[in-house]
Design a protein around this nucleic acid. Structure first.
Length: 110
DNA sequence: ATAGTGACTGGAA
DNA sequence: CTTCCAGCCACTA
């Protein structure tokens, strides 16, 4: 099983209404520095996938996709699950962070 | 094997 | 707080 499939396997376990960072997924896989690789894996997802790719956001708790309707769709899907965004387009790790994922002690970001 | 690209990150400016 | 920059990893040509 290659890296891409392992990423999908992990993301698929993210519960509804929760979010995880690219780095977080990478950490679960044992490769904390493979955040970009995680992004690559998600971009490779087929359009009819059942993997909750929208629950994966960047370290600032904001949507990292750029261009097209992608970012709008992701935000919509998250809000539909109860995830709220602040004025800066960011969500809250404290409230929606996936329990199975731990990050650095800073999490001081809103 | 080498080089370029990016849904990333942490640290410096 | 914002922008920049240099590593890092996987993928593709």
């Amino acid at each position: 099983m290659d890296f891409t499939h392992r990423v999908w396997h992990v993301v698929r376990q993210c519960p509804r209404g929760k979010v995880v960072s690219y780095g977080g997924v990478a950490a679960i896989l044992g490769t904390p520095r493979a955040a970009r690789g995680v992004g690559q894996a998600l971009q490779a997802l087929p359009p009819d996938t059942k993997v909750p790719w929208w629950r994966v956001i960047n370290r600032n708790a904001e949507i990292s996709i750029r261009g097209g309707h992608g970012p709008i769709l992701q935000r919509k899907l998250l809000e539909k699950e109860g995830v709220k965004f602040n004025r800066a387009g960011r969500t809250d790790w404290k409230k929606y962070g996936w329990d199975g994922v731990l990050r650095r002690p800073l999490d001081a970001n809103e």
